[in-house]
Design a protein around this nucleic acid. Sequence first.
RNA 1: GCGGACAUGGCGAAAUGGUAGACGCAAGGGACUUAAAAUCCCUCGGUGGAAACGCUGUGCGGGUUCGAGUCCCGCUGUCCGCACCA
Length: 775
Amino acid sequence: NIAAMRGQLKSMGLSLDWQREIATCDPSYYRHQQALFLDFLKGGLIERKISKVNWDPEDQTVLANEQVIDGRGWRSGALVEQKELTQWFLKITDFAEELNSALDTLTRWPEKVRLMQKNWIGRSEGLMVRWALETATAPAAFTELEIYTTRPDTLFGASFMAIAPDHPLAKAASTSNPALAAFCDECRRMGTSAATLETTEKRGFDTGVRAVHPLDSSWTVPVYVANFVLMDYGTGAIFGCPSGDQRDIEFARQYGLPIIPVVAPADEAARAAALAQIASGKAYDGEGVMLNSHFLDGMTTQAAFALVSDRLASESMAGKPVAKRKVNFRLRDWGISRQRYWGCPIPIIHCESCGVVPVPKDQLPVKLPEDVTFDRPGNPLDHHKTWKHCACPSCGKPARRETDTMDTFADSSWYFARFTDPWTETAPTTADAVNSWLPVNQYIGGIEHAILHLLYARFWTRAMKATGHIAIDEPFEGLFTQGMVVHETYKAPDGSWVSPAEIAIETDAHGRRAVRLSDKAEVTIGDVEKMSKSKRNTVDPDDIIGTYGADTARWFMLSDSPPERDVAWTEDGVQGAGRFVQRVWRISGEIADLPAAAHDGHFGADSTALRRAAHKALAAVSEDVERLRFNRCVAHIYDLSNAIMAALAKVAPRPATAAPDMTAALHEAARIFIQLLAPMMPHLAEECWHALGQPGLVAQTQWPVLDPALLVEDTFTYPVQINGKKRADVTMARDADGAAVEAAVLADEVVQRALDGRPPRKIIVVPGRIVNVVV
RNA sequence: GCGGACAUGGCGAAAUGGUAGACGCAAGGGACUUAAAAUCCCUCGGUGGAAACGCUGUGCGGGUUCGAGUCCCGCUGUCCGCACCA
């Protein structure tokens, strides 16, 4: 099946879950993923480092931040521990700059996705500044404190320094200060969930350490440990400029620290407003002109930024520059270690004497044991009696396998590359195949993959390039994010959710009511929401296919909404699609039954009108299908269906005597009709194609050839506006010139009445479009 | 808090700055039928009118334009992403 899939990859998209499933069913896939891991490790793209995680001691699992429910760090009754784990990290941050800047080259990606990735990568330009510490106040061996700031221009507004509770200086100062140590502990227990952050007040603890201002050695500021400073961004230390930062101003007001306005807009009124705003406790973080800033006064913020940066960079302290420019990223390295059974084993062996030893490539793949149990918390691989015990490939002594498995995002980060030559066993990819097939022309997935999957795949592709497995940077040339299928929700009187299959909808002039089938209880119709098991608003694909067929289901989904938007699954809508399926079959049958008569190639008015309709639909569908506007394709096909029905109605009373030109036109229209709908209703289309007496499969036919002459009408009916409002129609020959159109419009009765004898002030003729008369 | 998107009938939605509501669903009326289903025909933004036709209408307030659902400015609302990122 992978072989069959291969030819389609270029042109079609599959859902990520399908792709992932296909990829991981391939027994050789993990072998190559493990080989890639080892290549990445060798290439310095992977490192093993200590990371702090939320640990649920009861379930023995790592918790994601969003799983740590309440602010005190509890989850399902158990206290969440902060635990340090040694984990494997892919060094995506090494590519942060490139992953960010290359987003601009992805012109066929939705703007929204590119923006989300930009925000996620979070590039910022700033300055690293070293502040000297007053020796008498600082713990031994601490002579300076380095901070990161994006606003060096506001340095004269500094009134305090703040460091993270995990900052080395905080730890050192804690040793002689139990109260400070207690405060740091409390901060660590704080949750990091959004809800917690919103409600938590800014709190700090004065360490007693004082720092010397880099631009004025006579000026010192206190160093606090603060609960809002993050250890893993920048240096884990900041300088507080209350007038220019909302967090800092809250902190300063709480602890009675100075608030010095240093930036205000140049405009006098705006300046007063900004100063008043600061006085009332709201920071001004915009741009403007410097004040209260000594040699910077009067400069723009940009100029001050540059001057301070240059000046501090040229000054030196303890033999090194005081400051240097630094680009920082919000993006973190990708921790791929999972303490789970399901996933690709990490091909590493830990040896007491040799340390971390890669599994030799000829011993790959490291396979998961099949005799595992899930009867207790924790990682089954770790509990397995024999699996992890092995000999060190290097020294032969007893050693231990890595029991962590890879994040499954690793699997989905390169399957598209493997698919280009899935039979090769000697390497993950073969150069000719992978470089000729990739990048994927059109990728399709849900918006939920906007950041993680798509960013990881972009990174992994670059990593494979660095290790010589591929020659491209960007895996996906075009990206389309499709919507979800959503459904109404239903709630019984007792508040329980009721599934769509258990209810009946009654509709009358007063509206819609829902009743539970089992007990006739009135059911409340709720919002249309993403299908979920918990709200029971799901429909079973097997039921739909059993009742209506796959073509009906597909047709309905394509017809209802543009593909990037959610589509609401409704029983009425599916029934409508089902009726259309019947109609298509009927049309095919009726036209197939028309006697075939000799035709001389001349078409009369009625048959030409039908041919125009067919070719117009062909032109419109051809264009819209390329642009993935399937709901419009459906509308055009309905148009054509209506035109064919109308034509059929005329010949229906006596089909045996139908004019040969009309018969020919109907057959042509039917063929085009079936070919247009074949991509959306493939099964029905084949049946109809056969019924029409056409040879072979419609799927194998050439797309119909458009006759452009049929798109051009001989006449054009101009809408005539008077002062921008449509008041009349004037039908002209297609090639009538502007003057002729103008004359005809002015002669029109409605226009004459509006002009009331006066000449028009102005008349605009847009050839082939519209006429507007200004009176 | 920061960033972004969107707002059109009872509903899903159409509309390169050029006839707002294509196409479909729902609803109402009719034909066929003993009846129902299916099928076919008609009506379907609001409002006035017997009708012809008129007025009005794309969240709200302005602006640009011969002409704005579409472009610009300011609001309101909804949704999405990120979020103590210095």
